[in-house]
Simulated assay, not measured.
Amino acid sequence: MNFMPKIPLADWISSATDWVQETFSWLFEPLREDFGDFIEIFAEDWLMGIPPWLFILIVGVIAFVISKNVGLTAFSVIGLWFIYNQELWSDLMNTFTLVIFASLISVIIGVPFGILMAKNKVAERILTPVLDFMQTMPAFVYLIPAVAFFSIGMVPGVFSSVVFATPPTVRFTNLGIRQVSKELIEASDSFGTTGTQKLFKVQLPMARATIMAGINQTVMLALSMVVIASMIGAKGLGQTVITGLQRAEVGTGFVAGLGIVILAIIIDRFTQSISSQKTQ
């Protein structure tokens, strides 16, 4: 027996969403149209305009330069060739585009907020539960406001990926800055450095490895949203996985999923190699 009337939380959220849609329609419409067009141009004209063999060659050269690892270079070349051989190249480019934009936006948002948390205890107390909420909320839930604000397509896919993938960069940036030794901070203070100089010349360089670990996690989380984002019209390998699921085509879905795994391994090893180079 319910002794209290039901709290109309769902109605409140729906009303708030409608208000946000109407109030900020001037922002959402250009983002949906202009940013959506830019993403399409980036994927279809720029990336797909590069011959696959040249793209694979460039990735192989970059892999060898940043890692000096023949195994990673060979895996990158063979893995990308396999995706091309399976006629999934256009899907790969769309997936790569989604991951690039979601990761860049997440890092651009995450690093400043991480710095703010490290510098301000009040901001840390406010942002910590927000980050907890963002990380514990099921990823599928983020599709609802994404569709409400941006309709369907790549833009809501990027939006939902950003919300899901930003917290690691914020947390690791905060952690990295706070872990800088007090002796270094005191030494910089003794030389009369300003707060900005201390941040950019001492704290951020010393926290670089930790921040890069957070960025690596952000990229991986953005990639993990590929299949989920395809449910709201985001093009790419995730869409092929969903198609295989809907049509019970096990082979099609498995091959597309294998393509996502290959891309994930390549990106993960690239970011780790970049991080290890920065810390040497």
Rank of each mutant, 00 (worst) to 15 (best):
T17D: 06
G195K: 15
P167F: 01
I115R: 06
D45C: 08
L57M: 12
V65L: 13
I109V: 08
L221K: 12
S190Q: 08
S276T: 12
I177P: 03
D45H: 09
D45P: 03
S275A: 13
T194L: 05
F254A: 12
V255I: 15
M154K: 00
I152F: 10
S151L: 05
E29Y: 11
L184A: 08
K198L: 06
N120D: 13
I152T: 14
E33T: 15
E33A: 13
F133S: 04
Q203M: 14
P30S: 07
W19L: 15
F172M: 15
W19V: 14
K198F: 01
I78G: 02
E87F: 09
R208K: 11
V219K: 08
I144C: 03
T196D: 09
F140G: 10
M93W: 03
A118S: 14
T17Q: 11
F24C: 12
V122E: 09
K198W: 01
A256P: 06
E22G: 13
T210Y: 04
A187W: 07
I274P: 08
N69L: 08
I211W: 07
I274F: 15
W53T: 13
V261T: 11
A43C: 05
F159Q: 03
S151E: 13
K119H: 12
K121R: 15
S273W: 02
I109N: 00
T97E: 03
V250P: 01
I50D: 07
V111T: 09
V61W: 10
Q217H: 10
T73F: 05
N69S: 14
N216R: 15
T136L: 04
G244D: 04
P138Y: 00
V202F: 05
F3L: 15
I13P: 02
L31P: 02
A234T: 06
A74F: 11
V241P: 03
A229L: 05
G251H: 08
L199C: 01
L9K: 11
G236T: 04
G49I: 04
Q21E: 10
E183R: 09
V163D: 00
V20F: 10
L184F: 09
S230C: 06
D11F: 09
A102D: 01
E186P: 05
E87K: 12
T218G: 04
D37K: 12
T194A: 04
A234S: 09
V163M: 11
T196R: 14
W12S: 13
V227Q: 00
E186N: 13
S106P: 00
S15W: 10
P112Q: 00
V107H: 04
K198N: 12
V255G: 00
G214D: 02
F140P: 00
V130S: 04
L245F: 14
Q135N: 10
L258R: 05
Y84K: 13
F191A: 13
V107T: 08
A148D: 10
V162A: 00
D268H: 07
A264P: 02
V226T: 15
E22F: 10
S160Y: 02
A229I: 06
I62V: 15
F164K: 06
A102W: 00
W19R: 14
P138N: 00
